[in-house]
Each structure stands twice: as structure tokens, then as C-alpha cells.
Design a protein around this nucleic acid. Structure first.
Lengths: 209, 209
DNA sequence: ACCTGAACACCGTTCAAGT
DNA sequence: ACCTGAACACCGTTCAAGT
């Protein structure tokens, strides 16, 4: 009985020492991935952590701020997975294909999390510097890879920023259509479409040059 | 005074005769375009039409069903605008570019409406046959245009369905990034990116071949 | 057939109060 | 410094009741 009490107290003490913010964000990610953004309530996330439903307001300005933390974590994971694929395949065009596949795979495996990042739930994100910088870092991974491919002489020397925006639009579009079930409705798989997209991105869709 | 009363009554009578469903959907579209999906409440839409907040349930199963009607209307408008651009430019590759521009323009000009169509708010749409068929019709416009371009010998003879999914992913990706403000953050304009995307879609991004 | 009003079970957020 | 409990102003939805 005293043991239980002390364990409980020490856990609570940990929150007092600055872990509650992180715990809240992690619990939010779990809830969202399990049941979607709509199911995320501040009351439930507080209860899950054994804390009052208003305790959150000591660490986040409002619900949107919590969602911004979720989005930030999403951009971080996305960047790491995309860069991991790029490295694992040893860069080059093969590595670039792997980046695209990894991007779409992340979205398909974490659809609700991906929607928090791009579904307009966070609103204006200029007030969250961490979110902005994680988003930029993820995009920078794409720009860097393209610049390297240009150095290798396998990608045309357009403005790498513009090229990256274009490629991003393609993978983002494939990911979004997949998440929405629009591809499933046409009996198409995200992987298959992404593979086709990769090949078309390289050789173009025109029959004659 | 009697005039006012009779006008009021005749308006109410119109709803009785089957216009309330349409009026609710139109009001929902207006509200969403003005203030976003989040701001749509059944209470407010009812009040705006001078009707009880529960009157809606005679015409829609729930809020999701209303959103499905909004999405359906969105797909209809999108198809008409895209086809209009295609016709106006006299088909061909020029017409195809115009389709892409029109698509992105619709999304940018009606961001909240576009999000209802693709933001996961409608959930499974198999129970709304009108929504499914309007979505299919919009996609079919793209497939038909591509098939014609193949006949003209200006687009490679891949499976037109796969080609259409790919192109759709590109324009959808550009549209979504634009709506999200991701492009603005990089000082890029949707039109400019779409123009670049159009040219890259035709000639490919590879430097050699 | 179509609509209303009250009621129910939820929300996010504020704020005085506790430790 | 951090958390709580009650309170406030909202939601979507149900259902008996009205015309």
C-alpha cells in the first residue's frame, strides 16, 4: 500500500518536472493514430494520463497548440524515414525512388497523423517555430537529394527548389489520394501508382520527345 | 402586416414542398466557403433558414450526410470548370494545361469546399451513390481527355486509367500544398508551380534522354 | 409528411482556488 | 510552479409531441 502510493507519487512528480507536455503530445499522437483527429478530446487525453482535463493548459495554449506538437512530431518522423530510405539505397536514382516510396508509406501507415500535418487543423503555424523548422527540414531533405542528383548529372538543372516543390506535390498527391480511399475505389494500390509516377517523372509522359 | 405574414408563409411552404434539403445544402456550402468546415453547425444553418435546428434530420441522416451533399456539389462544379477550360482551349495539349490550371484554381478559390471533398470529413462514401458518381464523373473527364491526347499521338499509350491517376495526383498535390499554405511559405505561387509541373509532366525531369 | 422544443451526453475553455 | 473543480457557452442527436 505505501509502495503503490509512492510509485504513484513519483509518477506524478515526473510530470511536475516537465514531462507532462511530452506525455500529452505522445498520448495525442496515439489517440489520433488509433481513432482519428476527430476523436481527440482534451478530456480523454487528460484522463488517460491520470491528470485533470485542464492540466493541459499549463503546457499548451489550446487544443490547436497540441495539434501543432503532433504535426511537428510527424514531420520529424517523416524526414527520418525518408532520409533512411535514401541512405539505405545508397543515394542515386534508386535512392530517390526509395524516398518517394517511403514518403507514401509513412502517409498510408499513419493516415490520421498525416492529416494533422496537412489537413488544415493547425491553422497558421507561424507562431510555432519548432513546427516551421521541422517542416522546412523535411522539405530540405528533398531539395538536398535533388541537388545531389543534379551534380551526378541525372537530373536536369532547373531551380532545385522548384523541382523539389514539383516532386513534393506528386508524392503528396499520391499520399492524399491513397489516404482518402480514392485509389482504393479504382482498385489501385498506392505503391503501384507511386512506382508508375516515379518512372513517368523521369521519362515524361509525351510519346514524342 | 398581412403581406409580410403571407410572404413568410409562402417561403415556409416552399420548404415543405421539398426545397429545404437543397436550401440546407446550399447554406452549408456558403457557410463552409466563408468560414471553413469547423464553423459549420447544424444549429446555425437551421437558424439562417428560419427553421428549427432539428428540421435537418428530415432530409439528412446526420451532419456527415450534409457534408456529403456539399462534397457532391463540389465535384460537380469542379468537373464543369475543368471541362470548360478544356473546351475553351480547343482540346489538345494546350487544353490539357488549361484543365490543370482550372483544377488548381478551383481548389485555391474554394479551399474549404475542396477540403470537404478530400479532407476525410465525409468518411466512407459508399452509402451516397450521388457522391460516388459525381466523383467518378469528374475523374472520367480527365481519363477522356488523356485518351483523346493518345489518339492525337501526343501522349504515350500507357493505360489511360493509370496515367489519369498519376496526373490527378500531381494536380491534387499542387492544390493541397497551395491550400495548406506550404507554397506561400516558400514564396511560390500555385499557378507558377502548376505551369512548371505541366512542362515537366511532358518532357520529364531527366537530363539525359 | 414535416417540423418543433425539451432533453441528453458530450465538447473546449476560463478562472478562482488549492498545494 | 503546477494542478484541480466548478462553471460557462457551446455542440450533435434523440424523441415525444404538435400541425
Amino acid at each position: 500500500m505505501p509502495a503503490t502510493r509512492s510509485r504513484k507519487r513519483s509518477r506524478k512528480r515526473a510530470y511536475h518536472h516537465g514531462d507532462l507536455r511530452r506525455a500529452l503530445a505522445e498520448e495525442a499522437v496515439r489517440t489520433i493514430q488509433a481513432n482519428g483527429v476527430q476523436s481527440l478530446t482534451l478530456r480523454a487525453v487528460g484522463q488517460k494520463l491520470g491528470v485533470s482535463r485542464t492540466a493541459l493548459y499549463r503546457h499548451f495554449r489550446d487544443k490547436t497548440a497540441l495539434l501543432k506538437a503532433v504535426a511537428t512530431e510527424g514531420f520529424r518522423t517523416l524526414r527520418l524515414q525518408v532520409l533512411g530510405a535514401w541512405e539505405l539505397e545508397g543515394h542515386g536514382l534508386k535512392g530517390f525512388d526509395a524516398m518517394g516510396s517511403a514518403y507514401v508509406r509513412f502517409a498510408v501507415e499513419h493516415p490520421s497523423h498525416y492529416r494533422v500535418m496537412f489537413g488544415g487543423f493547425v491553422g497558421d503555424c507561424d507562431d510555432d517555430q519548432e513546427l516551421v523548422s521541422e517542416g522546412s527540414a523535411a522539405f530540405a531533405a528533398l531539395v538536398d537529394a535533388l541537388a545531389e542528383l543534379q551534380q551526378d548529372g541525372v537530373v536536369r538543372r532547373d531551380d532545385p527548389l522548384k523541382l523539389a516543390q514539383f516532386i513534393w506535390a506528386v508524392v503528396h498527391g499520391v499520399a492524399m489520394l491513397a489516404i482518402d480511399g480514392q485509389l482504393a475505389q479504382q482498385q489501385a494500390s498506392p505503391d503501384e501508382l507511386m512506382a508508375f509516377a516515379s518512372s513517368r517523372l523521369r521519362t515524361g509522359i509525351a510519346a514524342s520527345l
